[in-house]
């Protein structure tokens, strides 16, 4: 089981790293980090803040784009091209396939993020010449970004298990945007009472919550991140991703392949 899952994961990773689009996206992200350096120079006193805000936002947005664009094809592409036939005709269980795909893309994103983070820290070092103690919270911010990727991957995988790539992309992006405003959504739902409030409340809790995972602007100001928040966010992201991946496996388990 582990062997099969890791074989599928590795193949997914290999597919991603052999795709030129990935390098273009990473290149653009690093370009944006470099642009942040220039942008910081033309403003006064906030070079560091601008670099952190723009740099980490670039890492996050490009990662999300990669997660969604690869994620939506994870299952549907193999189904369309019928490469799935030769995989599932082997002693591979369908949920193993889903899990392998999930880990493969998460692995890809982690490696990407490491590269982008190295670029970002290099730019930061170039700008400020030495790191501060509070810069460890930048690592926390990057870690939270990776947690966002984990959720987005699972969500994209879920959509990919029953929908066409284009629709999946639209759904996943929409859910990402909604998830960014999830806290407002919950506050809004809390205003409605009685049965009329249950549906919005349930919806507000079902959408992934990305707002608590975005601490870029606060770490840019050198603020710390509470340990409990790190723990809760980790737990939340992993649990949500597990739920979405199980749902994907559940749907996939009962699908007739075209």
């Amino acid at each position: 089981m582990i062997n099969r899952i890791s074989a599928i994961s590795f193949n997914t990773f290999r597919e991603a790293v052999r795709d030129r689009v990935l390098y273009n996206l990473i290149f653009f992200a690093l370009l944006l980090v470099a642009a942040a350096l220039l942008f910081g120079q033309i403003s006064i006193g906030i070079e560091r803040i601008v670099l952190i805000n723009l740099g980490l936002t670039a890492v996050s947005i490009f990662g999300i784009v990669i997660a969604i664009f690869i994620g939506i094809g994870l299952v549907s592409k193999e189904m369309d091209k019928r490469t799935l036939y030769t995989v599932l005709a082997r002693p591979v269980r369908r949920w193993e396939f889903i899990l392998g795909k999930f880990f493969g893309l998460v692995g890809t994103l982690v490696v990407n993020t490491i590269f982008m983070a190295i670029g970002f820290f290099a730019a930061l070092l170039y700008l400020v010449h030495h790191f501060q103690r509070s810069d460890t919270y930048l690592l926390v911010a990057i870690y939270f970004i990776v947690l966002q990727f984990v959720i987005v991957t699972a969500v994209a995988l879920l959509f990919s298990s029953f929908s066409s790539p284009l629709l999946s992309a639209v759904f996943a992006f929409a859910l990402y945007i909604i998830g960014t405003f999830a806290e407002d959504l919950r506050a809004f739902a809390a205003l409605a009472h009685g049965p009329a409030g249950w549906i919005p409340t349930a919806a507000a809790y079902l959408v992934p919550n990305f707002s608590a995972l975005n601490v870029i602007s606060s770490v840019a100001h050198g603020e710390s991140v509470a340990r409990t928040l790190i723990a809760y966010n980790t737990g939340y992201a992993l649990l949500y991703a597990a739920a979405a991946t199980s749902a994907a496996a559940l749907i996939f388990e009962h699908r007739n392949l075209k």
């Binding site: 019928r82 036939y85 005709a89």
Partner: peptide, 11 residues
């Protein structure tokens, strides 16, 4: 199993 008109991971 060999499917009809097989397509494989071309990368």
């Amino acid at each position: 199993f060999l499917p009809e008109q097989p397509y494989f991971y071309d990368y």
